[in-house]
Design a binder for these strands. Structure first.
Length: 272
DNA sequence: ACATTGACCTGGGAGC
DNA sequence: TGCTCCCAGGTCAATG
């Protein structure tokens, strides 16, 4: 499910139920996520107050009294607020009980997600320390991207999906942003002009902001944290539209594979 | 330093 | 109906 807008939508959805409250209990039914859920986590988080619910890249960060609970939704993860703990499903791996009667439930069929704990500054955490800027921050601009791309021969699509360059640009929005900027996804990152990079930066910010406003894209199983679907899928220009007419020029949309991921683009509108 | 590939998992849909 | 194959929103770790 989750690209950055979905993760941020989830954060906003759960924040009012969690922030300022205390974790009364945690139940882990399946420790085998991307990394094992730490053995002592239930005991560690019990009775800790959550002071902030933040996000860095696609990581959700629950700032607690004694450290930070780090949660990643992976490819198929979901986090919902429930009024009770009924109807436990096969993929409901972790429940976090809040002292206001709500339960945060982490569901993840593919188990690519993660639930971890750190007592160190998260900026120095192994998984977070090397991440690039947030795409919606001012730091992410044409100068930055152009400088980073200098001398790079790899394709621009993989480049913008690289979390060390910029975080939060997943497959769907990488496709959409390149279409809006009129850049061929296979073009070498280092051969793109600064002017084009400026267009790309604006396109990335635009698609992410739009999706954020819509509450995240609905594809397969995405639901906002309250269980209602998001509704951005109908605004996609190229993603998932192989052989359908380009919405700008009517030429059929192409689909190729880059780094084992599907890339959709229009040959007419996105020149090399 | 950079680029590419495999790996982690399950479920759903297409095709036979 | 049921089997097999392929695909899926992420991203780390290992390899050239």
């Amino acid at each position: 499910m989750p690209e950055l807008p979905e993760v941020e939508t989830t954060r906003r959805g759960i924040q009012p139920y969690v922030e300022g409250n205390t974790i009364s209990k945690m139940v882990v039914r399946h420790r085998g996520l991307r990394w094992p859920v730490p053995e002592q986590l239930e005991a560690i988080v019990k009775d800790q107050r959550v002071t902030k619910v933040e996000r860095r890249a696609k990581y959700l960060l629950f700032r607690c009294d004694k450290g930070t609970l780090i949660l990643h939704l992976g490819m198929s993860g979901r986090l919902r607020v429930l009024d009770n703990d009924h109807n436990i499903g096969k993929h409901d791996h972790v429940d976090i009980y809040i002292n206001n009667g709500h339960v945060l439930r982490f569901t993840d069929p593919r188990r690519f997600g993660a639930v971890l704990w750190t007592e160190a500054d998260t900026d120095t955490h192994q998984l977070i320390a090397h991440l690039g800027p947030e795409p919606l921050a001012d730091l992410f601009n044409a100068d930055y991207l152009y400088q980073k791309a200098k001398g790079r021969s790899g394709n621009i699509k993989s480049f913008i999906m690289n979390g060390e360059i910029v975080v939060g640009v997943g497959n769907i929005y990488a496709n959409e942003a390149l279409f809006l900027a009129g850049i061929h996804p296979a073009k070498a990152a280092g051969k793109i002009s600064k002017a084009k990079m400026a267009e790309l930066v604006e396109a990335i910010k635009l698609v992410l902001n739009r999706a954020l406003l819509a509450g995240g894209t609905t594809l397969r199983d995405f639901r906002k944290s309250d269980g209602k679907p998001g509704y951005f899928a109908q605004e996609l220009n190229v993603y998932g539209r192989e052989n359908e007419p380009c919405l700008r020029c009517q030429a059929p949309i192409n689909c190729i594979r880059q780094a084992q991921r599907a890339t959709y683009f229009c040959k007419q509108c996105q020149r090399r």
